[in-house]
Nucleic acid binder design. Structure first.
Lengths: 137, 137
DNA sequence: TCTTGACTTGGACTCTGTCCATTGTAGGAT
DNA sequence: ATCCTACAATGGACAGAGTCCAAGTCAAGA
């Protein structure tokens, strides 16, 4: 994750302890925290960090393309630091748990022109929905 | 849409003027209203209908599988009455407009077992993101 | 027509997220 | 090493979306 910090510094990001802590909290695979969860974990390391700063920092990371914003359920958005490897999400309808999954040989053939209604299509999102082992009891 | 009302009555739904009005508002193709928009349009026909009833009714229609809940942007959920023909969504990142599109081949190839993390996979959602003609200026 | 349990109402409340004026500080300049 | 200042953090008020609940209403079966 220090390479992330390097990259950000290179882009002219002013490095503050708050931003560093938020970046640290977002490290790892299969991490999909809500802004509030990020705040709680960040505050454990830096108690005086404010909610507004967490929201600001997450928003900046998303704009910079370092973090992906995922809203799978209409509740709180989740933040996925695994932005540099394309992947899809497997979501539990019970508890909302999310796992990253990788596309097989399935390149999501582009939408044919006659189905585009004049849109410029830029991305495709695939979400698998199901029930996780813990919720399946 | 009267066939919808028939189906609901058949399932033991008590038919009230509020429910009828909500069902009418949701009629048509490419309809993806927010709960609030449904409330405004319903209130135009039945002024005393309450927000809570609109939410209740939409929730019931979703449970019954007659309407699909779509949350594409972390803002208000949208309600899609076109639940009986499988389809995908094309969403404008600018204004949030949604169009229904139909799958070409069969992009829903199941997730391979080794990628399921023990989940029971029940559905796949595909969302194309882009910019609509009006926002492309 | 009567009865009753299902439905509706509206207002309070929660959760998520944004805004803004004020205060603090990273990091280049001296 | 210290000073400056533009950029960042703070926290509290605010807003939008949705849920909850106690009380009143009504659809439809007897």
């Amino acid at each position: 994750m220090s390479d992330l910090l390097e990259r950000l510094r290179g882009r002219g990001w002013r490095m503050t302890s708050q931003r560093r802590v938020v970046a640290e909290v977002l490290d790892g695979d299969h991490v999909h925290l809500t802004a509030d969860e990020v705040h709680v974990r960040a505050a454990a390391k830096l108690p005086e960090i404010s909610r507004a700063t967490v929201y600001n920092t997450l928003g900046e990371l998303v704009s910079l393309g370092e973090v992906i914003e995922v809203s799978t359920d209409g509740r709180a958005k989740r933040y996925d630091p695994n932005a540099h490897r394309p992947h899809q999400h497997l979501v539990c309808s019970g508890c909302g748990a999310i796992r990253d999954v990788r596309p097989q040989g399935n390149p999501l053939s582009d939408l044919p022109a006659e189905e585009r209604y004049g849109f410029t299509v830029e991305a495709v999102e695939v979400t698998y929905r199901g029930v996780c082992p813990s919720c399946a009891t």
